[in-house]
Amino acid sequence: MARPREFETDRALERAMGLFWDLGYEEASLARLLKTMKITRGSFYKAFKDKHAVYLSTLERYDKQEVGATVAFLGNPENGSGRERILNLFNKIAQVAENDGDRLGCFLCNAMADKAAQGGEIEQRLQAMTLRLETAFRNALQDSYGSGLSQAPDNWTEETARGLLALYFGMRVLGRAGLAARMARDCVSQAEQLIDTAVTANAGQDPAKG
């Protein structure tokens, strides 16, 4: 009969993610990682092999929990039209920023700025997470304006989705820097203008009817 592990993997990974989130990959030494995860060196190597494997596991965890929740929100018709879903998402981020500054920011944003993101499996994982978000924005746009996109260029939704993604990441970075509370509402306004101006120009549809 197999012996139970001396720790709970989920809790250990949650603690590890918090450390990587706060310090980054390079600064999170193995000694500090073991202390934060509250496991022995032997248990660590049996379960995770090395720090790189733990980092990938924390990215996968964030992808399933946070990125997955955002993608699900943008794709759920019960949350309104595609336009409404997008703007509600930005408003939620703005609200967090206004309430507590959103100092935690976004783990994906932090990871993309980390040296560990330069090549290899980590870079591939980050690109896949980013593409999931971009696709969610694009699908929400098409849900809202599908009937009016026949006259628009083929790359309209792709360009607009990427602009929204850049705004989304920008708001999360500003939050970590303590600036989002002052700028959040302007970012929401820019998101709204980005959607409505492009649709009006390219499809001739009234955004308010989306």
Rank of each mutant, 00 (worst) to 15 (best):
D206H: 03
E14H: 13
E134W: 06
A181C: 12
D154I: 08
E159H: 08
R61I: 11
G120Q: 00
A97D: 03
K46H: 08
W156A: 10
H52A: 06
N79Q: 06
I86K: 12
Y45S: 10
L149K: 13
A177E: 09
S81Y: 07
R83W: 10
Q95A: 15
E27V: 02
Q142I: 12
C106M: 00
P153E: 04
T160M: 00
A140Y: 12
K51G: 07
Q151I: 01
Q142G: 00
A181I: 09
Q118V: 14
T40C: 08
E26K: 14
D206L: 10
Y145K: 07
K64A: 05
G119C: 10
N202L: 11
W21H: 07
L179Q: 04
C187N: 15
A116D: 06
M183P: 05
R41K: 15
R185Q: 12
E98W: 01
G42V: 15
G146W: 11
N139Y: 01
D63T: 01
N139Q: 10
L126F: 06
V173K: 13
F20E: 07
S81I: 11
L19T: 09
A180H: 09
A16S: 01
Q205E: 01
E66W: 06
T197H: 00
G175L: 05
D186C: 04
R138E: 11
D22L: 14
L131C: 01
T70M: 12
L179P: 03
G210L: 09
L23K: 14
T157P: 02
K38V: 03
A208L: 09
E14F: 12
Y145V: 12
G75K: 05
W21E: 03
A208E: 09
D143A: 07
Q151P: 05
P77W: 05
A53N: 14
A12Q: 13
N91V: 05
P4A: 01
Y62V: 05
C187A: 15
L59D: 02
L33H: 14
S150V: 07
V71L: 13
G18L: 09
A203R: 13
P207E: 08
K35F: 09
K38L: 06
S147V: 15
T197N: 02
E14V: 14
G120V: 03
A69H: 13
A69T: 13
E159R: 11
K209P: 04
